[in-house]
Design a protein around this nucleic acid. Sequence first.
DNA 1: CCGTGATTTGACCTTGTTTGACTTTCTTGG
DNA 2: CCAAGAAAGTCAAACAAGGTCAAATCACGG
Lengths: 162, 162
Amino acid sequence: MSSLADRIEAYLMHLLARSQDGYVEVRRGELADRFSCVPSQVTYVLATRFTPERGFVVESRRGGGGFIRIVARHPRPEQPAGLGALWRRIGRSLSQAQAEGLLRAWEEMGIVSRRQAALARHVLQQEARELAPPLDGMVRAAVVKGMLVVLSNWPAGNDGIR
Amino acid sequence: MSSLADRIEAYLMHLLARSQDGYVEVRRGELADRFSCVPSQVTYVLATRFTPERGFVVESRRGGGGFIRIVARHPRPEQPAGLGALWRRIGRSLSQAQAEGLLRAWEEMGIVSRRQAALARHVLQQEARELAPPLDGMVRAAVVKGMLVVLSNWPAGNDGIR
DNA sequence: CCGTGATTTGACCTTGTTTGACTTTCTTGG
DNA sequence: CCAAGAAAGTCAAACAAGGTCAAATCACGG
C-alpha cells in the first residue's frame, strides 16, 4: 500500500514530468488540502524525497503569495552515467588534471565548443592560480559547477548570449 | 498567485526597463490607485525590493507636486554589448548579495531560465557556505564565471546536455 | 512480540504581506 | 507670513503563508 508520502511524491513527480521548464510551483496549503493532510506532511515529503542528492532543489517563500518551487536538475532523474552522476563525481574539489579531463571529455562530446573549452581553461587557470591546495580545488569545482548549471538544460532552454 | 507587492514591483521594473535614462518618477497615490491598494503598500514595495542592496536608489518629495523617483544604478538593459563589461564587473570576488543581484538581473533579461537561476542560487549557497570571508567571495565569483563561460556562447550553438 | 526506522499529526515559530491610523514635509493662495 | 491642502512617511496590528520539532503511530524484519 503506497503511503500518503508516496502519493504526494508521485503527484509532484507527475507535475514535474509534464512541466515544460523543469520546475513546478505549488502551495503547501493547497497540496495538503488536496491530499487531506496536514501541511507539514508536504514538508516531510520534500525533505525526504526532493533532496539535492536525488537531484532536486527546493525554494520557497513564506507569507502572502507564498509558494514552494521544486526544481529538477535533470530531465531523466537517475541515469547511470547522467548528469546526476556528474554532479556527484565533481564533489567538493577538483584537481587541475581532473578539471582538464572533464573539459576534454565535454569538448569531445560536443557539449561545449572548442572556444568555450579554451575559455574555461583560461578561467580555471586564472581563478585557481596562487591558491593553496585546499582552496584551489574548491575554486575549480566552483567554476565547473557554474558551467554545469547552465549546461544541464531542460529540453527547451536558453542558448546563451549571442 | 503572485502577491500584490510582486505585481507592483513588476510594473515598476517594466517602467524602468522602458525608460531610456534608467530612472522613473511616479506618484505614490496614483500607483496605489492603479493597483487599488493603500499608498503605504507602495512604500512597502520600495522598501523591500528597490533597495540599494539590489542596486536602486529611491528619492522622493512630499507635498504638492510630490513624487517618487526610482533610479536603477547599474542594470541598463545592455543588450548587444556588455559581455566584456560583465566579466569586469564580476571581478575577483562577489558577495552573496551581488551574486544574487546578478542572477536576478540575468533571470529578468531571460539570459538564464528560472530553473537555471534556482540551481545557481543553490550551488552558490552550497559552495560558499562555511567559507571564511576572503574565500567565499572568490568561490562565488568562480561559480558565476563558470556560468558565464558557457553563456558567452558564440556561434557554435550549444543546447545543453540532454 | 519487539525494536527500529519511516510516516503522520499537531502545537508553536518565523517570515513576508496588507491595511489603516497618524505624522511630517512641501506648495500655494490669501 | 500663515493656514490649508496635497503629498509622502511611519509604525504597528492583522493576515497569510511556510518551517520546526517532537510525540504518536505504523510497518516490518528478526
